[in-house]
């Protein structure tokens, strides 16, 4: 079924919708209106609100009325090295986790792709996808239990195999890598899913031809797979990066940012400012800053994609 849509797509490439005359302009905006209304009410408005708040000293628990303080919140944030540390920690987390998930996901995805008629494939894929659909509130709590040195099944197995009891979540050296492993467990299925979809978007005929020509594997990847698959793969990486940047449930439940602040990621700090300290102005400034980072990330991804696309078109 994947190839059908591919064929459709090939067809559509040749018949790009041509620019229609002006009489359709009204209709086009009419059709967009509901989505734009939702967007304005639930996205633009809160964003502007947040931007506005970020220039105020506004703390719900303070007896002081909100006062305009200009860029003070931003400079406080930039000056605070504890927070910059948590931003860079978040980036390290993002990079390591997304790389691990992408590589593993591609590998597993290719396995399943190659074996498209394996017995029980549908069931196997269903089992494999479950980690990403169960609420992290439940899975993170259970990981915490499973990794517990006293009551955890992981440590029980380690010790019965003769290894020493390992203290995964409260060791300042192990906690961070452990969270990356759990995040990878949770999200590798997503990258594998994207890989399967990406491979599905490659026209079957081209795969056949490449196999018959016995192209070296590397050439197959660069000249057959990548041009078709890159959009979906890169979108997968982009979505994962944005979500990894926002990781909160995992750290909140498994370590609460500890031991010390070794797993304190920025979304968790932000949560604390907003909901434990009720510093609305300050947390808005941090949010605006994060918004810029996320937009920049996205712009970079899109730039890479588009640059490649343009290069191909001019070839």
């Amino acid at each position: 079924m994947v190839s059908q849509t591919s064929a459709k797509f090939e067809e559509s490439l040749k018949e790009r919708p041509k620019k229609r005359p002006d009489k359709n302009r009204k209709l086009s905006w009419l059709l967009l209106a509901p989505v734009l209304a939702f967007f304005a009410l639930l996205n633009v408005l809160p964003t502007l609100w947040m931007l506005g708040l970020s220039f105020y000293d506004y703390t719900l628990t303070s007896y002081k009325a909100p006062t305009f303080t200009g860029l003070t919140n931003y400079s406080d944030f930039v000056k605070n090295e504890q927070l910059s540390a948590s931003v860079s920690r978040t980036f390290i987390f993002l990079i390591l986790a997304v790389i691990a998930q992408t590589l593993l996901g591609i590998l597993i995805g290719v396995f399943f792709w190659k074996n498209d008629k394996m017995p029980g494939r549908r069931l196997a894929l269903t089992l494999f996808f479950t980690p990403m659909v169960v609420t992290p509130i439940a899975t993170a709590l259970f990981w915490k239990l499973m990794l517990d040195p006293t009551f955890g099944v992981v440590n029980y197995m380690l010790t019965s195999l003769g290894f020493s009891r390992t203290d995964f979540l409260t060791s300042s050296t192990l906690a961070f890598p452990t969270l990356i492993v759990v995040d990878t467990w949770m999200w590798t299925p997503f990258m594998a899913l994207m890989t399967l979809a990406a491979l599905g978007s490659v026209p079957k005929a081209e795969l056949e031809a490449a196999a018959i020509d016995r192209l070296p594997i590397w050439r197959q990847i660069t000249s057959v797979i990548w041009p078709h698959a890159k959009f979906i793969l890169m979108l997968g990486i982009l979505l994962r990066s944005i979500d990894a940047f926002k990781t909160m449930d995992l750290t909140y439940i498994m370590t609460n940012g500890g031991p010390g602040d070794t797993t304190e990621l920025i979304a968790l700090s932000l949560y604390r400012f907003a909901f434990k300290s009720f510093k609305l102005g300050y947390s808005s400034a941090v949010s605006v800053f994060l918004l810029f980072i996320a937009i920049a990330l996205t712009a970079i991804y899109l730039y890479i994609l588009n640059a490649k696309k343009k290069a191909e078109q001019t070839e």
Partner: peptide
């Protein structure tokens, strides 16, 4: 999808 949910909750 960009911003941590905690940022938008207050507005």
């Amino acid at each position: 999808r960009f911003v941590p949910a905690a940022a938008f909750v207050i507005p």
